[in-house]
Nucleic acid binder design. Structure first.
Lengths: 218, 218
DNA sequence: CAAGTATTCAAGATATATATTGAATACTTG
DNA sequence: CAAGTATTCAATATATATCTTGAATACTTG
């Protein structure tokens, strides 16, 4: 193989993989699957996609070795192939949300609308949790919490938050987290809890970022 | 802005940026620009693209804030906007070349064809250079060497290597490096030097990976 | 095994991406 | 300012990506 052929083959392959993730719907699917595996139905419910369309996007991701599937009874469950991809994805997200001016602007407006500025970083969180005057709140759907969550967090899914305020000690500072920087659940939680008089902030990142950080440090 | 609108805006923006780099020619341009700034002509020379086509690809990268340009006399020089993108790009490359089976296969065949297996990693290099029985050889074009190179490296561009063997001490182990894992110059250097009886290996990574690693550790 | 459900397939219409061509612009140099 | 050079623009043809629709498949459950 000549040098030019090698280069072409490598760049073609790399571009093919990148194309597979260069689509808004597929990026949203990736974010969902970085929480836990989901059936096609689970994906359809939170994305507005039709069944056929979601299935097609999943095939694209599968053909490019980004997700894998297993069948259990009538259902097909999809999940990310491994954490290596998740780690790359997070690098991309972090770059995009800090360095692309347009995205930075949209994001800060979203935080402001929900009164959720001054987010806490994972590093800060670590110190705060040790200090023990903090309540770490996971507002993702409970299935995602059960699949994995930040050590020490309690689970109150966003749609049950209003009816479960009694379970939130009002003397502690609440740190809410969700799926990641692009997820709005924690923003909504901050807004609601602030209105109810709580001292509350959101985590800048989400569960997947915490998980990758854990596996990195081992 | 509702949650769905926010998500759509963020994923659209992220997909747009990813699409900008999801093209073989643009990936090759990015690799070139991670060495040093280049004029359009410089890019045309090493890529097989026509002027108009290269220019169009550069516009795409520029509109997505991946490269910037400056004009000097008749020439327009392009370069990467900053090292944050370079760092993300390297994460992507590392993932792709290790985790995508097809690319891994192509890469190892390329190394084998040039007798360049057993590449040295940056970490290993650091230890070897300290031991001082090693000659670090930069085989990129001299303009790229002059713009920046690994500390301690000497420059012999690949196309001048055969006529400059006298400058390579034969008692040392030679470590050749070039633009990065997708660049073939170091492979060709290993092949040539092995045929001439040198003890030689290539660096797995290239100058940009070393540079990012330097700035990270500061 | 019939009926129901979850998922995928196949075909088509529309939108976007890409490379090519020839011309236009902008700058430099004599 | 005329001639030359580097780069970009605009228009087009082709290829690829995307979403929709309706059907086909595969599995489960009664």
């Amino acid at each position: 193989m000549k040098g030019r052929e090698f280069k072409d083959a490598m760049y073609d392959g790399l571009a093919k993989m990148l194309k597979a993730i260069s689509n808004p719907s597929r990026l949203e699917i990736i974010e969902m699957l970085s929480q836990c595996e989901k059936s096609v139905e689970g994906i359809v419910q939170t994305t507005n996609l039709t069944f056929a369309n979601a299935s097609q996007h999943l095939q694209v991701l599968k053909n490019n070795n980004i997700v894998k599937s297993r069948k259990d009874r009538q259902y097909v469950y999809y999940s990310l192939v491994n954490d290596d991809f998740l780690s790359v994805y997070q690098h991309i997200i972090r770059f995009a949300s800090h360095e692309i001016a347009e995205l930075e602007r949209i994001m800060s407006r979203q935080r402001k609308d929900n009164n959720a500025q001054h987010a806490v970083s994972l590093v800060e969180l670590e110190q705060m949790v040790n200090a023990d005057n903090v309540l770490l709140l996971d507002v993702r759907p409970s299935a995602e919490y059960e699949f994995g969550h930040i050590t020490g967090a309690i689970s109150i899914p966003m749609n049950e938050l209003l009816t479960n305020l009694k379970n939130i000690a009002s003397d502690k500072e609440v740190i809410a987290y969700c799926r990641g920087p692009f997820c709005v659940l924690a923003d909504e939680a901050v807004k609601l809890l602030k209105e109810k008089g709580y001292k509350v902030r959101r985590l800048d990142e989400g569960y997947p970022e915490w998980k990758i950080k854990q596996t990195m440090s081992n």
